[in-house]
Design a binder for these strands. Structure first.
Lengths: 239, 239
DNA sequence: CCGGGACTGTCAACTTGCAGACACTTTGCT
DNA sequence: AGCAAAGTGTCTGCAAGTTGACAGTCCCGG
């Protein structure tokens, strides 16, 4: 659910000289598809800026099942939290295609962080975004059914990286039901079932690894229904 | 799950003169039990430092059910994320007992934030903690059963605010099953059932609104079993 | 010391989603 | 064209947790 419109970098907003200093301190690293940027539990040695390619963030739950948190792309940053608190990584990042990263080692990060207050402020913006993101994510997982989450995920993905077609449909590429299941924290079978439901409702059309969204507004409908049903909102005195 | 050992303030770590400047800019506000600090969807006008009392952070899901995120106490801070990104509040904060807060208005925050780089750095530490917290929280909700989450919550609460008794038990006060259910994202009935299971296992003893923990290590046991069962951890090349 | 209110234990019916199994379709490579 | 691998549709249990209902238990104020 990263990899969608939103704030995914603390570099982009920096004034030019500071950004230049960051890039000057960073080394380059190439990854082939399947290679890990970092792994769960490891010590945070560096943070990363993705120049090219894709990096999937996930972790492995009980039965070895992987739950995808999101995918980051060119321009995005990974691994900042570890730079700030120094605690072990709490998830795993793996390149899903051949990628090229800028690596900013811990010591260099610390030096720049201490000397350029703009960096701390940009990181605040990024972390605030992430706090909101994870909070909403947790909320959504609890409050919405798999079908509703699927609809939302598809709608957001369409907004973010969808490719408009001539016939008005929006194409979502490289999006197998298995991958969707991982993102939603559900099983492939359940996704298949819900997907069929959406297809029968005429909201989309599917083809192996591809989804053609037909009615983007319609995908968000069921959620709005739910919000509309939220009749009994308790009130609290504010002053 | 806040209100437990952890980092809950960006004030405490500030150098003395800066902290003094923050307190000088803040006004005082008294809340009676049940009064809201802020509510879901409102514009972030200020952030808060709790001087005395308790503030519960929660939000209302679909059917009007409240899901408690945690409780903050004296010394803790609330509402920083809104100061940084200016977006509407994404949850509701209500005083659960008569409380006293310091209120730092947006304009004052902005002024101090711009002029004291230490504030941004302390906020990063706090936000990094919150990112981790929410991430773990989401993970736990997905991967662990209600019973396991209950055991963990009780263990952590015991560590955090438990009161050791003469007979070796640890007393957890003001902890009704209803409140636990809200924290765990479950129902009162399910908590009752799991609590009985823990009681039958001899790990604790309950009495209306109180829990006496007998075997703290034992409470964490079932989770360790689960971790131990995590045999098939896929490996990823790191270099 | 007694009665209302809050807290707790338990049950049955129901819903959601998981697990495993199996047949089928498409894609991509040779 | 042909074949293996990946992706998909669907079914049958099965487990966890919800909803609603009801009765029992404890606490505290009048």
């Amino acid at each position: 659910m990263l990899g969608l419109p939103g704030l995914h970098s603390w570099i982009a907003g920096l004034p030019e000289p500071v950004r230049a200093a960051v890039f000057a301190a960073a080394t380059r690293r190439r990854l082939t598809a399947g290679e890990a940027v970092y792994t769960l539990g490891s010590k945070p040695e560096a943070c990363y800026i993705i120049e090219r390619g894709r990096v999937r963030i996930f972790n492995v739950s009980d039965s070895g099942r992987e739950v995808t948190l999101g995918e980051l792309r060119g321009g995005d940053c990974v691994g900042e939290v570890g730079m700030i608190d120094g605690m072990p990584r709490f998830n795993t990042a793996v390149a899903t295609e051949d990628s090229e990263l800028r690596v900013l080692a811990r010591a260099d990060f610390d030096r720049l962080y201490a000397s350029h207050p703009e960096i701390a402020r940009e990181l605040n913006r990024l972390l605030a975004y992430r706090v909101r993101f994870f909070y909403m994510h947790a909320e959504e997982s609890r409050a919405l059914s798999l079908g509703q989450r699927l609809a939302r995920l598809l709608a957001r993905t369409a907004y973010g990286v969808g490719i408009p077609q001539d016939n008005g449909e929006i194409l979502l590429e490289t999006l197998s039901q298995e991958a969707l299941a991982n993102m939603l924290g559900g099983t492939r079978q359940a996704v298949s079932q819900e997907m069929k439901r959406l297809e029968r409702a005429g909201l989309l059309r599917t083809s192996y690894g591809k989804v053609y969204v037909r009615d983007l507004a319609g995908l968000l409908q069921p959620v709005e229904d739910l919000i509309g049903a939220e009749a009994v909102v308790p009130t609290y005195p504010t002053e």
